[in-house]
Nucleic acid binder design. Structure first.
Length: 205
DNA sequence: CATGGGATTGACT
DNA sequence: GTCAATCCCATGC
């Protein structure tokens, strides 16, 4: 049996996500996200887990956290600050509330479409933040709970160019609880990482 | 039912 | 550096 004659590689399977969330967050650097004619390489992620108070799932099972506690390999999309849709990949076995927030991409497919959706031209302004990349890819709240293995949002494996990315960790952005956990992961030196960039040297704080 | 707080961004002092 | 936009939802009365 031949593989289908598609340009894109198969999406990551649900098994990929059914692992400790920190492991998945690191592994997702260099992978691809694709939706509605646009795609990018993941250059920044953050991990969230129901054992720590910055995670939405910390409060337990509610209508909002239903997706977070559900099956791994699905999208958790929620509205942030009343304005932005933020994309997460649900991780760990069903019953555990954990997810990886996709924080930044390096655009590589449909860049003109991204420019139109964003109303901006500079490549570094298109996907360099969690709210920016959902706008650039056309992802909305309706995709909450959808499968990342079958679409409409698909996450694919690392391509040859990104086989062994240099990943740096830092503290998570924009939270007020559990601020000391270094659960943010970035592709070292990449220009599409959101601000503030993690310190490359002198990781002591 | 009223309130308050965000896993952000862009515009502005 | 400051700040408002805007809305979902958890919480408390």
């Amino acid at each position: 049996m031949q593989t289908p004659a598609t340009a894109a590689p198969p999406a990551l399977s649900a098994d990929f996500y059914e692992r400790p969330v920190l492991e998945v967050a690191r592994s997702l650097i260099g992978c691809t996200v694709e939706h509605a004619g646009t795609a990018g390489v993941i250059v920044e992620t953050e991990a969230y887990h129901d054992s720590e108070p910055a995670c939405h799932a910390f409060v337990g099972l509610t209508p909002r956290t239903r997706t977070l506690f559900g099956a791994p390999g699905r999208a958790y999309v929620y509205r942030s600050y009343g304005i932005h849709a933020l994309l997460n990949a649900v991780c760990e076995p069903e019953g555990v509330g954990a997810a990886v927030l996709i924080r930044a991409l390096e655009p590589f497919v449909g860049i003109e479409t991204m420019r139109r959706r964003r109303g901006l031209t500079r490549a570094e302004d298109l996907c360099s933040g969690p709210g920016k990349l959902t706008q650039a890819l056309g992802i909305s709240l309706e995709e909450n709970g959808s499968s990342l293995t079958s679409g409409p949002i698909r996450i694919g494996p690392r391509t040859d160019v990104w086989k062994t990315p240099a990943v740096v960790s830092g503290t998570r952005i924009g939270i007020t609880k559990a601020v000391d956990l270094r659960w943010r992961f970035c592709l070292a030196g990449n220009r599409h990482v959101s601000r503030p960039r993690p310190q490359l040297s002198g990781e002591r704080s």
